[in-house]
Design a protein around this nucleic acid. Structure first.
Length: 409
RNA sequence: GGGGAGAUUCCCGAGCGGCCAAAGGGGGCAGACUGUAAAUCUGUUGCAUUAUUGCUACGAUGGUUCGAAUCCAUCUCUCCCCA
């Protein structure tokens, strides 16, 4: 089975410009493909991971990946599929973000292998001369056709600025530059990038007369079509400082039944046959085994084996034996916060960031959402004595799934 | 450039000058039920104190009024139609 068939089996392939040619190209290792990443935040998230992991699969099959940082395109912002304009970001922030991206990306793509390249479109976009760019590149674009693109549909109702309309042209130009510079012959991306990719393919043909290809990968969505990788507290980041490995692990441990198989196939590097064999027939609560594997495998590739083991062990102890683990999320409370060796429960919750405000803390307590040690506390006026901190800590449970070890400092 | 509509709490979206911390929905959080799942049901959802209440909030700034999210003026931004 070639890498193309593997990607297909994993459900990663969404759209292709030319299936036969692309299969041939990918399977023979002849693809020099690029995926662009706009530096919109200071950490990669799960959506990026999916693209990077897929790139890694292709690289392992001998294809050459080009990772393109969008230092230039981020200055404009991609309007595809959005119904509002992106916030305009400063050069400094974009540069900082791009630096953060670079560090994280090296984990997934092997840049030491020949042909693997990291580029930044700031290098050719920012110093363009407006008029000559229009004459050389702009001339190849039909506004009529651009506006007909699916990705602008919602924007045509709410308004689309000329500024943003140029995004597609910039991205298309990227492809042309990479084609010229590195012999790039394929662009990949999320399925929302289809229009932009087609633009690039067209441009390369018009400028160089060369045939290049485009492929989009399925977006990671739940069975209900909602984007995955977002939690109530925001995106799931790959940066351990923004999303601790334990939280990362828990996110995947808690995916819905209907999504486990797809996630396993799309995100982990376990062989498809193994996934099907081991988990394909599971039903009901047995699916928990699949979820555990998903969480473990993903944490392992993103944060390393050691962190994955820790997260798995912590989760097991906390959930299965109601025990204490050194690796469970820890919060600190200062000795100075106590008065006569006592502290109000609400103060404790707020000071440890378990609850964002006292009102919220009160609500939690009154609704029975707080368990201290093994006592459910429902009195908001309760106070906590230092003596409760056996061995210097106490376990606070917020809701059913959030466990914290509060350490007395 | 001309004409019109609008800016409300996390999001969408109601809102007679006092009864508006603001309907309703979504989302979130918590409880019940469960499998660390889903669906369902219940409660809750600005901050601070809870007995009362205080403070901050309805694009921005001023004004009218005993009293404004609601009226007036100016400004900023957005959308629609025409050119």
């Amino acid at each position: 089975m070639g890498v193309f068939e593997d990607l297909k089996a994993r459900g990663l392939i969404a759209q292709l410009t030319n299936e036969d040619s692309i299969r041939e190209l990918m399977n023979s290792g002849g693809a020099t493909f690029y995926i662009g990443y706009d530096a919109t935040a200071d950490s990669l998230h799960v959506g990026h991971y999916l693209q990077l992991a897929t790139s890694a699969r292709l690289q392992q099959a001998g294809n050459k990946p080009i990772v393109l940082l969008g230092g230039g395109t981020t200055m404009v912002g991609d309007p595809s599929g959005r119904n509002d304009m992106r916030k305009i970001m400063t050069r400094e922030i974009i540069n900082h973000n791009a630096e953060c991206f670079k560090k994280q990306m090296a984990k997934f793509i092997d840049f030491k292998k020949p042909g693997a390249v990291m580029a930044d479109n700031a290098d050719w976009l920012l110093d363009l001369n407006y008029v000559s760019f229009l004459r050389e590149v702009g001339i190849h674009f039909s506004v009529n056709r651009m506006l007909a693109a699916e990705c602008y549909k919602s924007r045509l109702e709410d308004g689309l600025t000329f500024f943003e309309l140029n995004y597609m042209i910039m991205q298309s130009y990227d492809f042309a530059v990479l084609h010229d510079k590195y012999g790039c012959n394929m662009q990949c991306g999320g399925d929302d990038q289809w229009s932009n990719i087609l633009g690039g393919i067209d441009l390369v043909r018009r400028m160089y007369g060369d045939e290049v290809y485009g492929a989009t990968f399925s977006l990671l969505t739940t069975s209900e079509g909602k984007k995955m990788g977002k939690s109530q507290s925001g995106a799931i980041w790959l940066d351990p400082n923004k999303t601790p490995p334990y939280d990362f692990f828990q996110y995947w441990r808690n995916v819905e039944d209907a999504d486990v198989m797809r996630c396993l196939k799309m995100l982990t590097f376990l062989p498809v046959e193994q996934i099907d064999e081991e988990f394909g027939k599971l039903e009901g609560k047995d699916l928990n085994r699949a979820k555990e594997t998903l969480a473990y495998e993903l944490t392992k590739t993103v944060h390393g084996e050691e962190e994955a083991n820790k997260a798995l062990a912590a989760a097991k102890q906390v959930f299965e034996s109601a025990g204490v683990s050194d690796d469970m999320p820890t919060k600190e409370i200062a000795d100075a916060d106590f008065e006569n060796d006592m502290i109000g429960l609400l103060d404790l919750l707020v000071k440890t960031d378990i609850a964002p405000s006292k009102a919220e803390a009160r609500r939690l307590v009154e609704q029975g959402g707080i368990i201290l040690g093994d006592i459910k506390v429902e009195d908001a006026k309760a106070t906590v004595g230092k003596d409760l901190f056996d061995n210097g800590f106490v376990i606070v449970k917020k809701g059913k799934k959030n466990f914290y070890k509060v350490v007395l400092k």
